[in-house]
Design a binder for these strands. Structure first.
Lengths: 202, 202
DNA sequence: CACGAATTTGAGCGTACACTCAATCCCGTA
DNA sequence: TACGGGATTGAGTGTACGCTCAAATTCGTG
């Protein structure tokens, strides 16, 4: 029988995700990770092979959480378009000390690693594509329900949605105050709501 | 009489801007700069004091060029709103090998330096604010000319404009193909054009 | 209780970084 | 043409990085 692992993999990965999300791949040093994960270098390497691999696991974790969060948001909503619009307002309403009150980790990741870490950049792009798919599926459901006209291009709408999302979260990163952020989110949410065909049932 | 400086400061700063823009502050090493500026480390330090200071000069250069470029775009346009809308289309139409076919340097800079280089981050934020002012001035002119209703909030529009700009340029960074990028730019340009009060003269 | 394997430890490895400075070079001047 | 001094050079500095591995520790098992 194998000995029980004395470190908590889940907590360690959560800590890694926080660190990498906040500081990025390059600016997060092994020293930072040792402190954050409460593990010594040898243990980190035994458990996660390399800094790069740990980053990839943290990024995957972020992606899974994001997708789950989005799906929960959509499930809660009265209709697909309402859920998509709510996404913006939810982000702007994040508590001031919420960890998520910063740029999207995928956005930061791509900026940080595009020129230096091709493997990470590639994975990041694939997660961004998957999220866009997720949004496109939302718009497609809206279309099927008659919330969106048949002529609407769901992929194009999804791209626009993701662009808005990235921009809104960059605004959090910038530190723009809550009121102005809320206005921006409101503009984006209204843009979604205005797509609604008149008289569509919820 | 002082000896003529044998390095070309203008060209050197242009090279520094390119390097820093593409790779960011942290990922650009002194080795890269030596090669790009064709200067030895001692000369670089004699001319620019430090990597950080060189970066600040490169960033300032980028800001000045961006502002000048925007003003030229506005001067060329038939009306303020037309100029602002054209901005998006111009970016999407950039030649495939144009250096500017990537994320905005200010955006990248803030992501790269926010947690590690407070002085750079601060300067970056001030340039972003100045660009937003520039956009707000454009909307204000549109308002004065009757292109925009008096009720329009020019600062809010400018914030939205800048968010769209950042998002569009991030799409270039991502490597999205030209056609899809053009669609996104078109969505953003139309959003500006739709603000136009019906029957406003040009 | 003693053994052995799985796990953790942390001093220390090679490397690459930003940066320095004594030596050299080059050009305007006399 | 010889000189003086500012500009340029690049080997070399200390430091911090990602990472390793032999030794110590910890536990289930016989």
């Amino acid at each position: 029988m194998t000995r029980a692992t004395p470190y908590n993999r889940d907590k360690a990965l959560d800590a890694a995700m926080s660190l990498f999300w906040e500081k990025g791949f390059h600016a997060t040093s092994l020293k930072d990770l040792e402190a954050g994960l409460k593990m010594k270098p040898g243990s980190i390497y035994a458990a996660f092979s390399s800094k790069e691999n740990l980053y990839l696991l943290a990024l995957e974790r972020y992606f899974e959480k994001s997708r789950l969060g989005h799906r929960a948001q959509m499930a809660r909503a009265a209709s697909p378009l309402a859920g998509l619009a709510a996404h913006f307002r939810t982000i702007a309403a994040l508590s001031p000390n919420d960890m998520a009150r910063q740029a999207c980790m995928l956005t930061k990741s791509l900026v940080d690693t595009q020129t230096t870490e091709p493997a990470i950049a590639e994975k990041t792009r694939s997660y961004l594509a998957a999220m866009q798919q997720e949004f496109a599926a939302g718009f497609a459901r809206a279309q099927k329900m008659g919330e969106l006209p048949d002529s609407a291009n769901t992929n194009r709408l999804a791209r626009r949605f993701q662009a808005n999302l990235a921009a809104l979260r960059f605004e959090l990163h910038l530190g723009t105050d809550a009121l102005e952020t809320a206005e921006l989110a409101e503009d984006m949410a209204r843009e979604i709501e205005n797509l609604r065909v008149c008289g569509a049932s919820e």
